[in-house]
Simulated scan of single mutants.
Amino acid sequence: AAAMINRYVSLGNRLTTPVLNALGTRYLCLLNATELNAIDTNSLKTAALDPSACSQTTKDILYNKAKRALSDQHNSRAYYLLIKPYLGGAPGIDLKALGKDRVNMDIETFTKLRRESLMDLTPAEVKDLLGVNLSQLKAVQNVSPVKDWIQKQKQSELDKLQIGLSGGLPDGYINFVTPKFQPPSSAPLGAVAMVFHVLPALLLSFLMMFVLS
């Protein structure tokens, strides 16, 4: 099937809605970047796709194509419903925008968001994004990437959500950074030893000059 798809695309054909629906999710995830870019952008408005099981690269490409396809509906309620299958490739800034639109994201979609994007969100922004579904976050607090997100937040900020989340950073937490030491000099040991031998004499000479001046 992969060879057939590659041949189809190499002949200059676009992957339209009927083709995508025929491929299904299984083969969608096998498409390479060239084949994904051959997808007709407008077909993502009507194709029944679920790329949640695909690689992150595939999700990113499909999200960007879907976002362009739906740009004329960005301010409508329908936009969220249409873009939802592709949100696994959405950057943090776009998730914040959806939160401002009060989309009431379901928890299943939330747990499939890109980890790096989720890490960009504050507890208040997550509250805006989930809306009426916020209480369901408690049930998945030990599931990645939600668990990773919780561990990055201050516990006092998580407490403001009033849903019983635990595992955040305590107030006053200091993130210690291991100091970086200069690597040992590559100079020969003899040269290093000479420096330590000469240094006291130089220091003594300097002090004598200071006293006599």
Rank of each mutant, 00 (worst) to 15 (best):
A1W: 10
M4T: 14
M4G: 08
I5F: 11
R7V: 14
V9A: 01
V9I: 13
G12I: 05
N13W: 03
L15H: 04
T16Y: 01
P18A: 06
P18T: 03
L20G: 05
A22W: 04
G24F: 09
R26E: 11
L31A: 01
L31G: 05
A33C: 00
A33L: 01
L36R: 05
A38F: 00
A38I: 00
I39P: 00
T41P: 00
N42Y: 08
A47I: 12
A47F: 10
A53G: 07
T57Q: 14
N64M: 00
R68F: 13
R68W: 10
A69W: 12
L70R: 02
H74V: 14
N75S: 09
S76R: 01
S76K: 09
A78C: 05
I83A: 00
Y86P: 06
G88V: 14
G88N: 08
G88I: 07
A90I: 08
A90M: 02
P91G: 07
P91L: 06
P91N: 08
G92Y: 11
I93H: 09
I93A: 09
D94R: 11
K96A: 06
A97I: 07
L98S: 03
R102Y: 02
M105V: 10
E116D: 13
E116F: 02
E116M: 07
M119C: 02
D120H: 03
T122L: 11
T122S: 14
T122W: 09
P123H: 11
P123T: 00
L129S: 02
L130I: 01
L130G: 00
L137P: 08
K138T: 04
K138M: 11
A139N: 10
V140R: 12
Q141D: 01
Q141I: 01
Q141C: 02
V143Y: 04
V146S: 02
V146M: 10
W149R: 05
I150C: 04
I150P: 03
Q151M: 15
Q153H: 11
Q155T: 13
Q155F: 14
S156H: 14
D159M: 13
D159I: 07
I163D: 03
G164D: 06
G164I: 05
L165A: 13
S166N: 12
S166K: 13
G167C: 11
G168H: 11
P170R: 04
G172D: 05
N175Y: 05
F176N: 08
K180Y: 11
F181Y: 12
F181K: 14
P183Y: 04
S186H: 10
S186M: 11
P188N: 13
G190C: 00
A193V: 12
H197M: 15
L199F: 15
P200I: 12
L204E: 04
L207I: 10
M208N: 06
M208Q: 09
F210G: 06
L212Q: 08
L212A: 10
